[in-house]
Design a binder for these strands. Structure first.
Lengths: 203, 203
DNA sequence: AGCTAAATGTGCAGAGTTGCAAAAATGCAG
DNA sequence: CTGCATTTTTGCAACTCTGCACATTTAGCT
């Protein structure tokens, strides 16, 4: 019991538990009958909260599957600030993003989640709106890191394009016939971006 | 009357008229009381169609304001294919996107629309989902143009990042204190992308 | 323990959005 | 002009999602 659910007071712990319960219920039901045949109401019944509460935690049922939730914003921003100062902005952002994805893929629930995501394309389309959180987080971090502020056009561009890299990687990964390593797909997307979108030279 | 509303049969013409009526009603009502205080039902009442029909034309009320609708997909794809063959993929895409935006900005309704967009940030966030259409169109066009197909990772990347350029441009444009020329903001975004996101050198 | 302020959970009402199947409009023979 | 196939519109029902007001819980203090 003395694991990671120790931080702070009862309030925080309860919130985390509720979030986890909702996530777990969603994953279970989604796997069982497919996302389209599960209502928010059912997820809530299983997690023991009211439907209204569900939307205090997630913007949509699809979002329960994805890693970038509202509360990860400051954490990600902090990681961007904490990168070695000699790194260029896009290097720092890339590192943080790749790290986040790697962590997600390494998680113990990933195999079940990834199966769901791979077989239900709609999930991604709707759920990836959650990537907006990632965008904001990167802008926060980069804005401070560069001293340009989160509204700066260059900051916006680097953040948005990096999020797009994730989008593309996820979609390519999902569409691939053979199962590929998501981290590698993501790296290729970033490489393409750093080439300024020049065509890749095939071997 | 012998303008552009001549194409094809009655069916097509009516569809275009309905679309226009919905768009016009939306713009008028949005301007009058702000987007949040206008319901789809009201728009439909003014356009003389049932609420259900509205969603046969648009995916959301915000979309009525934006240029990339479902029916522009083939047209945009065609323009990508029609670019001079010596152009690199991202050059061709950039040209088409910049052209589209320029055309929108030059339209006679732009001043009213841009005022709406500038003063209602939520409109963009919700409405830019419509940019998905642009993404698909670019992928279609590039997929054929390069012979890689619309699913190819490189094709996906170029399309997605180009759409992101539009996103960033629109947001920068909207957030700018002094009113800027959208085409120029967009060009700067593309420049940044072609630099591989290297930091801009200030004068 | 008891009080208060802040955070969290809940119910409700209303708007947005979608699938489905029936109804109306249109295009096209004959 | 009439009948038939196709497209478009519509009504309906169910679900998603949001704002608001109110109840409940927790944190911090005494």
């Amino acid at each position: 019991m003395t694991t990671a659910d120790e931080g702070a007071g009862l309030r925080e712990r309860k919130k985390r538990m509720t979030r986890q319960a909702l996530r777990a219920a969603a994953v279970r039901l989604f796997t069982e009958r497919g996302p389209a045949c599960v209502t928010v109401e059912e997820i809530c019944a299983e997690a023991g909260v009211s439907p209204r509460t569900f939307f205090n935690y997630f913007d949509s049922k699809e979002e329960t599957l994805l890693p970038f939730t509202r509360d990860t914003r400051e954490e990600v921003a902090g990681r961007v600030r904490a990168r070695p100062p000699e790194e260029e902005p896009q290097e720092a952002v890339r590192a943080v993003v790749e790290e986040s994805i790697a962590r997600t893929v390494a998680g113990e629930t990933w195999s079940q989640e990834s199966a769901l995501l791979r077989s239900n394309p709609q999930l991604l389309q709707r759920g990836m709106v959650a990537a907006r959180t990632l965008n904001l987080a990167l802008r926060d971090g980069l804005g401070e890191r560069t001293g340009r502020g989160a509204e700066d056009p260059y900051v916006r561009l680097v953040a948005a394009v990096s999020v797009t890299a994730v989008h593309v990687a996820v979609n390519v990964w999902q569409g691939a016939v053979e199962e590929r390593d998501m981290s590698q797909v993501l790296a290729e997307a970033f490489d393409g971006i750093e080439r300024g979108l020049a065509p890749p030279q095939e071997a």
